[in-house]
Simulated assay, not measured.
Amino acid sequence: MLVIRPIAQQDFPTLKQFAIESGHGFTSLPVNDALLQRKIDSSLAAFSEVSMTKREGLYFFVAEDSETSKVVGTCAIDAAVGLSAPFYNYLLGKQVHSSARLGIYNVVETLTLTNDYTGVSELCTLFLQESARHGRNGRLLSKSRFLFLAEFSTLFDHRILAEMRGVSDANGNSPFWSWLQEHFFTMDFPTVDYLSGIGQQDFIADLMPKFPIYANLLSKEARAVIGHTHSNTQPALRFLEEEGFSWRGYVDIFDAGPSVECELSQIHSIRNSRHAWVAINDEGLCDVHSADYYLISNTQFADFRATLAQLSLSDSPTTTGLPTVTLSEKVARLLKVQAGDKVRIVKI
């Protein structure tokens, strides 16, 4: 059984291993000890105190196997992108070239460099080891962040963004970047991906084309991958689409992977989540066991915990208007809750 918790310093060796396993194109986990440590430090600082308003901060989580205590995955929320360093995207748009006199009307797609997502909160760094990619583990890891967003919504922007990894091959070659490299750069895709991941992005402003790019001038291979995701990222995209995320024309400037977004209040798991009081009863679960799986989290900040379990839920509200959820001793222990505590739940 997996439980989601904030990252700790002891997780550094595992995080570095994830950086190696994630491969090319996974910009938020570069193989760089100093940067990975900065990410842990940033998360520890973010979880050290609850702010009353939105500010920069990285909330980094790991998935831990409760049976083996082994960490098998990560996910994170960046509270506000683009404030300390520019956050670039291409926006896929259209320009019309027409002449009524000649009877010619042509619509041409363009790619325009933007900073439109500045200040938006981002879901990032979703990685699950291959050995753990079974059952509902991927869904838990991805969607557990929504319970944290729901519980502490004042820390985040009203728009939530997720950048999807674009198309590249096993050697890290991106068809989209290959075209940009040929005409504007002399660096291969793994190099620019790494530089971006460690925060050295000055070359973007220096070397990126300053004017919109006509998409029809790109190579056939580059045009074909605009807005498409890497095969390893397609399950993560499906989870987000289930939640109401959609693509609005923004793509990554390196591999042209889509950036999807949703209003925080309209995310399915946030909109449908609710609080409940905790009851603990191992024996009762056998009789009134619900067949439905629920995402469930405590309401703590620094000690946030979330997991996925079948729950016994009383639909009859208490005097406070909240239902009561019956947990097993094991689930209650993993969530660090006791009878009478409040949790947040949403049906999967």
Rank of each mutant, 00 (worst) to 15 (best):
T324M: 12
K210P: 03
A309M: 02
G166W: 07
L123A: 10
V346N: 03
L141G: 04
L102S: 09
L140V: 10
L141A: 13
V343W: 08
F301K: 05
K330M: 14
E109K: 15
A8R: 14
A45W: 08
D202T: 07
K330R: 14
V50A: 10
V331Q: 06
S144E: 11
D41R: 04
W277M: 12
D202Y: 02
R55P: 00
F148S: 10
T229W: 06
L91M: 07
E64K: 06
Q181P: 01
T326N: 12
D157M: 06
D303F: 06
L128S: 02
I270K: 06
H289N: 10
T68L: 03
C124L: 15
W247V: 00
E56T: 12
V278I: 14
S269L: 01
A276P: 00
S312G: 09
H24R: 04
E241V: 13
F156S: 05
L240I: 06
L29D: 01
S153T: 04
Q200Y: 06
A80Q: 07
S174V: 07
V50Q: 14
V192N: 05
S246F: 12
E151C: 10
I226A: 09
R271W: 00
T229A: 15
P212S: 11
K70Y: 02
I267Y: 00
A8V: 08
D157L: 06
K94I: 08
F60C: 02
L36P: 00
H134S: 08
A79S: 14
T191I: 10
F156M: 06
V346Q: 03
S265V: 13
S269I: 04
A309Y: 02
H158L: 05
R136A: 15
L36H: 00
S231G: 04
D292P: 01
L58H: 03
F254R: 09
S328G: 15
F239N: 12
R274G: 11
A279T: 12
G166L: 08
T191N: 04
S131D: 15
L91F: 07
N89Y: 04
L327K: 08
A8K: 13
E241A: 11
R55H: 11
I253P: 08
R274T: 07
S259F: 11
G249R: 08
G93K: 07
H275D: 13
T112V: 13
T326F: 01
N171L: 09
N106G: 03
I213G: 02
D315K: 11
G244C: 01
Y293C: 07
S66C: 08
T320Y: 04
V260T: 09
V71K: 02
Q338T: 14
A205S: 13
V3W: 02
G284V: 03
P190Q: 09
S174G: 05
T318G: 13
A205F: 04
T27E: 08
D202Q: 13
I160S: 05
S269R: 01
R223Y: 10
A79G: 02
D303H: 12
C124E: 14
H268N: 06
A34Y: 07
